[in-house]
Write a protein that binds this DNA or RNA. Structure first.
Lengths: 342, 342
DNA sequence: CCTCCTTGGGAAAGCGCTTACCGGGAACCG
DNA sequence: CGGTTCCCGGTAAGCGCTTTCCCAAGGAGG
């Protein structure tokens, strides 16, 4: 950028040296600037609309106020909720958030963490969950370790096996509780729209649900488990494939709300009456979807709070690290899963 | 950050000077580095896991690859869709997005643009629309002008009166078309949930809708226009207040989808049958809400495309500026607005 | 064999800031 | 009244990189 006003200009206009100008503007520790000079400097800065160069400050100070945030897709309400929490908390601490969307491209997290390293981010938050690609996870772990070795602080959300502070959503427990609740409503024959098989978030939810059913002796046949992307269309397609198998079930658990809504659309298109013809449950309790009709039974996850927690974890300097925080969910029963006769 | 590997380390390990190391890594223009040295440098860099310091590069080069994005609330699907477009396009150009959420706090945009200026962002995108606070707008205009004077490029979305490239959504025309479509379905007596009165996006939509009705001679009494925040709860509350007035209307236009969904919830809670008891229309065609039931009639706005366009506008160097791009919407009629007998 | 050009590496000057460190003057003490 | 402290402003050394400028070496041409 050309022509920007520098501290040099301010100092000259105020008739003081660079050092004094800097001290006047930053109020340097145990160092006083005479009130008169201070005011002269502040006035000059205001008159010139001086804006300190963040890069120069970063170089001189050796640190920044940047939070790097990597997530799968900001348009997905799950991630945008977490991002909102991160941004709210970051703002409260005077931090600026630099965000990168991996679009689920393998290895993208690692690239972005690298970018954040180059920018000397003081905090990096990685939100995601891929379980299959071991090599990619190892690379990410290595990059994060390098980042922390340089003095940065990293937090992973829903991404285990990383050598940093981790926030883990209790997908297993939430799905188990949901399974129990659905059983208690009288359902016995279930199907699951299982999401992507390589996403831990998805497989944990399937696992918890299966466990609940197994304990109660309810049915969940392998052919009643259909996988598919974590999207609306993924839910729609998975539901279609399930319907093709003419399953003898009364209740479908889609492992996230977005898929559940797609599934409901597929059911409607197939002429199934909702909720009477089929009970549908989701997971996450996405705010935007709280008013779908019939109201979607789901597991509420405090997504914004998780984002905020990630920032707080990164900022407090606890001695023993890495730490693991588990965040639980709460079953919310709505109209989409009516009680049925046992 | 301490302990990070610097170019100096790489140069020493490769047995060359800083200059050569830099040239080898960047492939400087009209300047050749002998292949053998080049390889030595690259190998050394890889072995040391060298990551160039972005701030040092910014200082030396006088520019950055940062896009600053300011919006109202990333958790709102309208803004997260635009943000997704910005990020996708930015990524394609090797840019990093730094994002700030104003939470609708007055003057926050100006603060954030200031922060982006300090970071020498090469592009700043402001998404928003506040019409009342003239002083705040002027300050923002001044800040953006200063930013562009320093060589940056700014783009405003839905925010007129700013001395920079602007993308304007045709709210008026979209709402007009929607009004026409609803009229053609047989509706004659309308109400509007008008959104915040200080948001241009909202008032333009009301204006366009009113114009369509006026032209056709349909009714839109002032007491049938209720304002409220652009949120789900805003829609719910506005609808409640409207119902208290026992309006004699067959169709409600909520000026965005999120409000429309809240309104539908309020109608259901009031025992109104949907869509038979009341037609409801929205605006935006939020992707996440495309499967609400009954399907919401709305005006589709290409939000992601608008985000991407903002980046492209900022990057191409057209001579004549500032430019104005108008983006239109398209009416999508779904089940929430059934035809009625004239 | 000498001069002129080309090739390509290195030294060093910044980019804009922070922060030791230095030093002059005033205040205070014996 | 000289010496010791403070107090507070200035000088300058970096932070890690890019890039201009200089210069040595080798090849071509006379």
């Amino acid at each position: 950028m050309t022509g920007s006003v520098t501290l040099h200009d301010v100092a000259r206009r105020a008739g003081v040296s660079l050092a004094t100008a800097s001290r006047a503007l930053n109020g340097s520790p145990n160092r006083v600037v005479r009130e008169e000079l201070r005011e002269r400097v502040l006035r000059a800065a205001a008159e010139l609309r001086y804006a300190p160069n963040a890069h120069a400050q970063a170089m001189a100070r050796g640190r920044t106020n940047i939070v790097g945030l990597s997530l799968h897709d900001i348009a997905d309400p799950y991630f945008s909720a977490v991002a909102a929490g991160v941004m709210r908390e970051a703002e409260a601490h005077g931090l600026l958030v630099t965000m990168a969307s991996t679009e689920r491209r393998p290895g993208a997290e690692t690239d972005y963490v690298g970018a954040f390293r180059r920018h000397w981010a003081s905090v990096v938050i990685v939100v995601g969950s891929r379980t299959d690609d071991r090599a990619a996870t190892d690379q990410l772990a290595e990059e994060l370790a390098a980042f922390e070795a340089e003095g940065g602080r990293a937090v992973a959300v829903s991404q285990p096996r990383l050598p940093v502070d981790t926030i883990s959503i209790d997908n297993h427990g939430g799905a188990r509780d949901l399974g129990d609740a659905l059983y208690d409503l009288g359902h016995r024959r279930f199907a699951v729209l299982a999401g992507p098989t390589d996403l831990l978030t998805a497989t944990e939810r399937v696992g918890g649900f299966r466990e609940a059913l197994a304990l109660r002796g309810a049915q969940l046949a392998p052919e009643h488990i259909v996988s598919g992307p974590f999207t609306r269309d993924g839910g729609y397609e998975a539901m279609r494939r399930l319907l093709d198998r003419r399953p003898d079930v009364t209740c479908v658990f889609a492992v996230n709300d977005v898929m559940a809504v797609g599934a409901m659309a597929a059911l409607r298109d197939a002429g199934v009456d909702l909720p009477a013809g089929m009970a549908v449950a989701g997971f996450d309790d996405i705010a935007t979807l709280r008013d779908v009709s019939p109201g979607l039974t789901t597991v509420r996850i405090p997504l914004e709070e998780i984002g905020a927690l990630a920032v707080r974890l990164a900022l407090d300097d606890d001695v023993e690290r890495p730490r693991l925080r588990r965040v639980g969910g709460e079953v919310v029963v709505r109209a989409s899963t009516p009680a049925v006769a046992g």
